[in-house]
Design a protein around this nucleic acid. Structure first.
Length: 151
DNA sequence: GCCAACGTTGGC
DNA sequence: GCCAACGTTGGC
């Protein structure tokens, strides 16, 4: 069992949107490192910190769970999608994704609060220049986030 | 809107 | 394989 942090722009898919859906296919990832996490490492049951990015109050807003294995992101084949990739074909898909399910909404754990927590000092999402939309979270970081959310 | 940091592209 | 140019991310 592993843990992850997944960024979502709330104007695209917010935690409330995610909670209203039985499953959220994590479409639109077009970065190879993030794709590889979904394709190669994520497992059903893995824990996910749902993070709002590119918004007024960036931070963790919920808990989710991986509920599928990886499969091709259908938007790569859709010419009308902004995620269309002309180099991808159904025979040779380039982008893979997993489904997640939102488990619960939490209070907003803001980026600044995360930065002020000594137990999260090494968290990848807090590293300078970090832009990866999916990052692994250690079990101690997960525990520290859960403790902060209980405060 | 700014801009630092990073990833990708493409000429050579 | 190098690397300059370009595009994107995302906090502020």
């Amino acid at each position: 069992m592993s843990y992850w942090l997944m960024k979502s722009e709330p104007e695209e898919v917010s935690i409330d949107d995610a909670l209203a859906l039985p499953a959220v296919p994590w479409v639109g990832v077009r970065n190879y490192q993030a794709r590889n996490f979904m394709r190669d490492t994520m497992r059903i049951g893995d824990g996910v910190l749902f993070y709002h990015s590119s918004c007024a109050e960036p931070g963790i807003t919920g808990i989710a769970e991986v509920i599928s294995g990886s499969y091709p992101d259908s938007t790569q084949f859709d010419v009308s999608s902004k995620y269309f990739d002309p180099k991808a074909t159904p025979e040779n898909p380039r982008w893979m994704l997993v489904d997640i399910k939102a488990v619960r909404k939490t209070r907003l754990l803001s980026l600044s609060e995360m930065r002020n927590c000594e137990h999260l000092a090494e968290m990848l999402v807090l590293k300078k220049g970090s832009r990866l939309s999916i990052t692994p979270v250690s079990s101690s970081e997960w525990a520290a986030v859960m403790a902060l959310l209980d405060e």
